[in-house]
Simulated assay, not measured.
Amino acid sequence: MAGNQKAKAKAEQAKGKAKEAVGRAVGNERMEAEGRMKGAEGDARQAKEKAKDTFKH
């Protein structure tokens, strides 16, 4: 299960970076901000999984 959550975190980070880049390229500030937010969600999920791994061992 933890591997699945880690994969979701990486996917969210990638989607966020892509959306942010597209928003920047077309000059859409809202899309760029949504991309940053999605990336931050992925970062938070990844941090949570790392913390769980730390306490698991």
Rank of each mutant, 00 (worst) to 15 (best):
M1C: 13
A2K: 14
A2P: 14
A2N: 14
A2R: 14
A2L: 15
G3P: 13
G3K: 14
N4W: 13
N4V: 15
Q5N: 13
Q5F: 15
Q5W: 14
A7T: 15
K8F: 14
A9T: 05
A9E: 02
A9I: 08
A11D: 10
A11W: 12
A11V: 10
E12G: 07
E12Q: 13
E12P: 01
Q13P: 01
A14Y: 10
A14C: 12
A14R: 12
K15F: 10
G16W: 02
G16I: 01
G16M: 03
K17F: 00
A18K: 08
K19N: 08
V22M: 00
V22R: 04
G23Q: 06
A25D: 01
A25C: 02
V26A: 02
G27H: 05
N28M: 03
N28G: 02
N28F: 08
E29S: 12
E29F: 07
R30Q: 09
R30F: 01
R30D: 07
M31C: 03
M31A: 05
M31W: 09
M31L: 07
M31I: 12
E32A: 12
E32L: 02
A33H: 07
A33V: 06
E34Q: 06
E34R: 05
E34M: 07
G35A: 05
G35S: 02
R36G: 01
R36D: 08
R36W: 05
R36E: 06
R36C: 07
M37C: 04
K38R: 09
K38N: 06
G39A: 10
A40G: 01
A40Y: 11
E41V: 14
E41G: 02
G42Q: 08
G42R: 01
G42S: 00
D43H: 06
D43T: 14
Q46K: 15
A47I: 11
K48M: 02
E49C: 08
E49L: 03
E49S: 02
E49H: 01
K50N: 08
K50F: 05
K50S: 06
A51P: 00
A51K: 13
K52W: 03
K52P: 00
K52V: 14
D53N: 08
D53T: 11
T54S: 00
F55N: 10
K56H: 09
K56F: 14
H57P: 08
H57L: 09
